[in-house]
């Protein structure tokens, strides 16, 4: 065997092993959204509470977290305490607001979910036919989007938000772009 072949063989083996080593830390479930850094679809939809429309539009100086959920979704129950906490913590911030979108759901189901697990206080759009969810490319629940004051989607997370998400992922963006 020529020495070039020997080196090539060992280099290939080492290369594949290194790749696996690096690959072990990669979260294979993380999928970036093609909507990232694209303008968000504005919507104006009937509120889950029945008290007039819930509107998403670009407002100067205001970041909006849009959270898609449904009463049929088990992970949403797990996520809910953090949403409650986040809403309480950010109630007084002028640069941050939250909107829920209850999709593929019945009104009774959605309201029962809120009365059972607690009402975080912000408003929810009611989207039984998934019009908003389809526009936003939502394929599971929960999914959350962070929209900046210009109306651009800056963050997307498929799956529940975790405690500390706001400080770790949202704050750097919000502070990096002062109102």
């Amino acid at each position: 065997m020529k020495s070039t072949w020997k080196i090539a063989l060992l280099a290939t083996v080492m290369g594949i092993l290194t790749l696996f080593y690096l690959g072990l830390g990669v979260d294979t479930r993380y999928i970036p959204s093609p909507l990232l850094d694209k303008p968000a679809f504005p919507f104006s939809a009937e509120g889950l509470d029945g008290k007039g429309p819930v509107v998403l539009e670009a407002k100067p100086g205001k970041w909006v977290l849009v959270n898609f959920w449904g009463s049929w979704c088990v992970s949403c129950v797990a996520e809910h305490p953090y949403l409650m906490e986040l809403a309480r913590k950010t109630r007084d911030r002028s640069d941050f607001a939250m909107i829920g979108v209850d999709f593929r759901d019945t009104r009774e189901g959605g309201l029962r979910f809120l009365s059972r697990h607690g009402d975080p206080g912000y408003r929810h759009a009611f989207d039984p036919e998934q019009r908003i969810a389809i526009d936003w490319g939502v394929y599971g629940a929960p999914e959350s989007f962070l929209v900046d004051p210009q109306g651009t989607i800056r963050l997307k997370r498929a799956g529940p938000l975790y405690p500390g998400w706001f400080e770790q992922e949202a704050m750097p963006l919000i502070q990096g772009m002062p109102p």
Binding site: V13, L17, F20, Y21, G23, L24, G25, V26, T28, R29
Partner: peptide, 29 residues
């Protein structure tokens, strides 16, 4: 090891992955 996402990757456990990788590295080298 769950290093590739696929319908088959039942176990997404990096600790296991590291062990299998070390084992494989020893054998391969």
């Amino acid at each position: 090891s769950g290093v590739l996402s696929s319908v088959h990757a039942f176990a997404n456990d990096p600790g296991r992955g590291v062990y299998i990788l070390v084992f494989m590295a020893v054998l391969l080298l």
